[in-house]
Amino acid sequence: MTPLTAPDPGGHLLPAHLAGPVPTARRRRPRRGVVLALLGALIVVGGLGGLQLTASLGYDDSRAQFAQALDTAEGRAAEIRRTTDELISITDAASQLVELDSGMLTDPQTKEQLAASVASASETTSTTGELLDEDLPDAEAKPVTFWDLFAASTALRTDAEVLERLDTELADESPALDAASSDLMESGLAFLGSAADAAAPFEAAHISAKNDDVIALRNAAASVSEVTALDEGSVSSFTALQDAAAQVVTSENAELAEKAGPLQGVRLEVEAFARSLAPGVLIEFDWSPVVNGAGYGGSMGGLTTWWWDEPDRALIELSDSVAAQWPAERSRALVAHEVGHAISVKCEGMYDASTQDSIEKWATAWAIGMGFSDDANGVSAYGYPPQSYIDAALACR
């Protein structure tokens, strides 16, 4: 036991080992493993940060490439859709023309060509429509983690390639659409032109039709000849032309039915003679037993109504006795007198049309000028016309 030393007054004793010198403290160095772990963690964090940055920038580039491809494809699709819609509209009109055609006026070859153009255009729009119906890819919201960013970037690049391919395919359709539209328009206008051109010979082949129906045919043909595009308007014009042609046939059949009987052939011969004296004037004829108070007992009657407005036209009424006595000179002279009235529509202003006497003397003078000297030319009924009338009438042909 360690002996204790007597303490100073007011103090206390301590054991010797507590009272001895204080030992010096030592610092321990960090362990190598901890340092390496920290360094590794820093490296991993730095690497992950680099991956995240790289993935984010890569995504942005892919997104920009995708956006550009999408804008281009959408613009191309809008352009091709407009062109396709226009072609579909033209095709619909052309198809209606083919379906409505009765063959009354159109040329069979032009109709066949139009039908072929319709089929070709329909095939073209069908092919283009399939491309336009493809769903365009869309980009979702930007991911957060680098692994999702890398995956999304790959998907965006793939989608961009799809859009670029679609844009190329749509661009390739443009020439086909233009060619189909041009071919269809050319075939359609040729088809309509053939119908308009056929109106005149059709009219000539149905010479006995009523004037109003012939005029309607002419107007309808003129409307069709002015068509420059295939649309609803062209279909309406063609329909009106066909209806007018059908009415001409109906009108002629009705007129011929009225003229049926023993004198029909002679009546038509008289009408043809009258028309030959006044080319360019539309003349229709009505026949009755009595006209203008004459027709029985060997007498002949005639009456003409004409219109000064366009087109030149007139209605000549003749008694059946004119046909019964045909081709006697007196019958021919009377017809010439009536044609003198009818043709005055071409010679307005060449004589005084204010009095009935002047009007009758003009027609008589015209018949005389045409070489018909029988008194049935008007002389027997209205007297001999002044030489001045004959001279003026010679200029009216």
Results as ranks from 00 to 15, higher is better:
V290K: 06
V290Q: 09
V290G: 08
V290P: 12
V291H: 01
V291W: 01
V291T: 05
G293T: 12
G293V: 09
A294D: 13
G295Q: 03
Y296S: 15
G297H: 11
S299T: 14
M300H: 05
M300A: 08
M300T: 10
M300K: 07
G301D: 04
G301A: 05
G301Q: 02
G301P: 07
G301S: 06
L303C: 07
L303F: 13
T304L: 03
T304E: 03
T304V: 07
T305A: 14
W306C: 08
W306D: 09
W306A: 13
W306S: 13
W307C: 07
W307T: 11
W307P: 11
W308R: 15
W308M: 14
W308G: 14
D309C: 09
D309F: 09
D309P: 14
E310A: 14
P311E: 00
P311F: 00
D312P: 15
D312S: 12
R313K: 05
A314C: 05
A314N: 01
L315Q: 10
L315D: 09
I316V: 10
E317F: 05
E317A: 14
E317Y: 10
L318G: 07
L318R: 04
L318S: 07
L318A: 06
S319F: 02
S319R: 02
S319A: 09
D320Y: 08
D320L: 11
S321Y: 06
S321D: 12
S321I: 08
V322D: 05
A323K: 04
A323H: 06
A324K: 13
A324D: 15
Q325M: 14
Q325V: 13
W326G: 09
P327Q: 12
A328K: 08
A328V: 08
R330F: 12
S331E: 09
S331T: 14
R332I: 14
A333F: 02
A333W: 01
L334P: 08
V335Y: 00
V335L: 04
V335A: 03
A336G: 06
A336Q: 02
A336M: 05
E338N: 08
G340R: 01
G340T: 09
G340A: 06
H341R: 09
A342K: 02
I343T: 08
I343F: 04
I343C: 06
I343W: 01
